[in-house]
Write a protein that binds this DNA or RNA. Structure first.
Lengths: 150, 150
DNA sequence: CAGGAATGAGTTGTGTGCAACTTGATTGCG
DNA sequence: CGCAATCAAGTTGCACACAACTCATTCCTG
């Protein structure tokens, strides 16, 4: 809560700056991740999908989409590329024929070892302290929640 | 700055959460902006370009790209769409024939009036206080600076 | 002053991201 | 039971975002 009055003009500038900062930060992260993931042959969204599978095991497309807030229009071609790369298999669910289960292959499981050093490099590259990272995560989470509720 | 020891595993999880939060927040903002800008016929990146032109007047493509951290591969088609929409003109610079100056048309200038209420709606939708917005802007700016320096 | 390096736009190709739609399977209500 | 509503994937179309490239112009150095 600010104890000082804030002019309308300043508010509008602040909004622009926050939105722009978010846009810029997201792309800056993307750039560094792109570099870090290049040797793994993964893009950042593909890496996010692999993280989900490494952590939770086989999951239907729908569930992955819920975790990452991505729809089938984004996930379907992405998963096809992961399948073409030999990292996952896509198999129709037996219980519900509408559903497709995504399962790691041997190569997909093994890739985890090579991916382990990535987050540490990213963490160092941000230049933030653990406290600041927690603050950032908290604020971003609240913003996302509020915006999604709109 | 943390006074408590932090395990490696927790650090890695924190990194994932921050990166994912950033990705998610950026897309959540995009979604709300998409809605707010729909009646103006602008996408969010197009809106960013218009903001630059409204604030700074005619500028070469290069300068706009520096302000928004976008390269010509992104800006060229985007500016062509703005030109097709009748909002800007593209004219070769007289001093430097390599350079293209982007200039608002009458319609582009007038659009500003209709765009004015947008940031206030966004500000309200975030649900954050002014203090929190400043903190968020500061952290994002530092992250982007650090990542760009890599 | 000449010619190669550097610069500013633009083009091409790949990969998201999302809206709108299609297809096939399941659910549930009358 | 039967059929409409719902649901999960996938497809299509459009708009970024970026790497790698081309082309024309300008700079700069020998």
């Amino acid at each position: 809560m600010s104890s000082l009055p804030v002019s309308d003009a300043e508010l509008l500038r602040l909004d622009h700056q926050v939105c722009f900062s978010l846009h810029a930060a997201s792309r800056a992260f993307g750039g560094v991740y792109r570099e870090a993931l290049k040797e793994l042959g993964l893009t950042y969204p593909q890496y996010l999908v692999m993280l989900v599978l490494w952590e939770h095991g086989p999951e239907p497309v729908k569930r992955i989409g819920e975790r990452l807030r991505l729809d089938s229009g984004t996930l379907s071609p992405l998963l096809k590329r992961l399948e073409a790369a030999g990292l996952v298999r896509r198999e129709r669910s037996a219980e519900d024929e509408r559903s497709v289960i995504i399962r790691l292959t041997g190569a997909g499981t093994e890739l985890r070892e090579r991916a382990l050093p990535v987050p540490r490099r990213m963490l160092a590259a941000t230049g933030l302290t653990v406290e600041e990272l927690r603050t950032l995560r908290g604020l971003l989470g609240r913003v996302t929640g509020a915006l999604d509720a709109t």
